[in-house]
Amino acid sequence: MVEAVYILGALISLACAVLLLRSYLRTRTGLTLWSSLCFIGLAVNNIELLIDLYIIGPEVSLALLRSATALASFALLAFGLLWERA
């Protein structure tokens, strides 16, 4: 059941990324591109979580990689917001 939430999280993040990317291609608004990249990162983050918890087992931890992915995702979003503000 818990894994379903992570899978759903990844799928929804991916859907948001696709919608935002589609909007970027139509409007060329920077914020939609950066938000799209953020959501791609969040989708990857959820996939990493699934791999970490259910595929590779407890002997190897992807916690650092997962945190780095989440940080990079939100950094992209923050950059997009600042870029738009400039």
């Binding site: 589609r22 970027y24 939609t32």
Partner: peptide, 13 residues
């Protein structure tokens, strides 16, 4: 603002 509107419009399926 244009960016906000484009962001919101992205989710109009």
């Amino acid at each position: 603002p244009e960016a906000i509107r484009d962001f919101a419009n992205a989710f109009h399926i």
